[in-house]
Computed example of a mutant assay.
Amino acid sequence: MRQIVLDTETTGLDPAQGHRVVELACVEMENRILTGRHLHLYLNPDRDSDPEALAVHGLTTEFLSGHPRFEEVAQQLVEYVKGAEVIIHNAAFDVKFLNAELTRIGLPAFHTMCGKITDSLLHARELHPGKRNSLDALCERYGISNAHRTLHGALLDSELLADVWLAMTRGQDALLMDFEDDGGTGANGMRLEQFDASVLKVVLADEAALQAHSEYLADLDKAAGKPCVWRGVQEA
């Protein structure tokens, strides 16, 4: 599974007002492992950044004037993200800018180039409702050092977000990685292939549990207006 963590920096907040992308960074992961094959581009926007945006990223007009325009490197981006899941924090913002840049040079929308777009901000809000879920807040929550982040930079932010994403979505992968690290043995030294499932105790549902389950299925039938899929499982 190929995943790309992407971030941009821009001259302002709204491409409809002529604002442009000034920095684009992509960090690649294969099967949840960082490959080191990054794509990092500074772009000449042919305009100044708003003072507020400049204070965020620090990329001056003079510095950016020596770099290529988006149309000169667009094909690099197209080839890089092809077929991959692209992970973006607050994806609506970055995709809006990327679509504006692509439309300007006659190319299709960004989502048509990649396999899937995943918004890590929405994922974080589902995991941590009611809490701060900015990149800085998530770094603090998951113990990822961002002490070197004095200004926003697309590459640094992408690298931090990749670490955050791996931490947020670890789940069962944490167990799998532990098994791989110890050569396929568990905490008691027993190899996984030696595990005998027949030694596990089987606990059958009692009458009360079966009745509660039947009532639950009846509620599902009523809500759906037809027998729920579990009826078919029971009859199979």
Score class of each variant (00 low, 15 high):
L122N: 05
D7W: 11
I117V: 15
T185L: 07
G66N: 10
T11K: 02
D7K: 01
K201T: 15
A197I: 04
R141G: 00
Q3L: 14
E140A: 11
H128I: 07
A154I: 02
V203L: 12
L43C: 11
K116Q: 13
G186H: 03
F195C: 12
A92S: 14
N146D: 15
L155P: 07
F97V: 01
G130Q: 07
P129C: 04
V73L: 03
F70W: 11
Y80P: 08
G106C: 05
A91Y: 00
A154F: 02
E52V: 10
N90E: 06
N90D: 13
F179I: 04
S198Q: 07
A236S: 13
S198M: 05
D50K: 03
N99Q: 09
I4F: 14
R125M: 11
E52I: 06
A53E: 04
L13Y: 04
D196I: 09
A100K: 08
K226L: 06
L135T: 14
A212C: 03
V233S: 04
L204K: 15
P15D: 06
D94N: 03
F195P: 00
V73M: 13
A218S: 15
V95P: 03
D206S: 04
F195I: 13
K201I: 11
N90L: 05
A208Q: 15
L6D: 01
T11G: 06
K226T: 04
L77M: 07
G18T: 09
T118A: 14
A74H: 04
V21C: 00
A25D: 09
D136C: 01
I4N: 01
R47N: 04
L166I: 03
D136T: 14
F93P: 01
A124K: 00
D178M: 10
G232C: 05
L192D: 01
I105N: 02
A91G: 08
A218V: 02
L54N: 08
G106T: 06
T11Q: 04
P45L: 01
L161I: 01
L13Q: 09
D181I: 08
Q211E: 14
T11P: 09
Q172C: 02
M168Y: 05
H89P: 09
A84K: 06
E62R: 11
D46I: 02
R149S: 00
W165C: 00
E28I: 08
E71K: 09
L155N: 08
A147G: 05
L121G: 03
V73K: 06
L151Y: 10
I4R: 04
S134L: 02
D46P: 02
R2V: 03
L64K: 02
L41F: 14
E23V: 15
E72R: 11
A208P: 10
L220M: 15
M190A: 15
A212S: 09
A91V: 09
H40K: 14
E207V: 09
D182F: 14
Q17W: 03
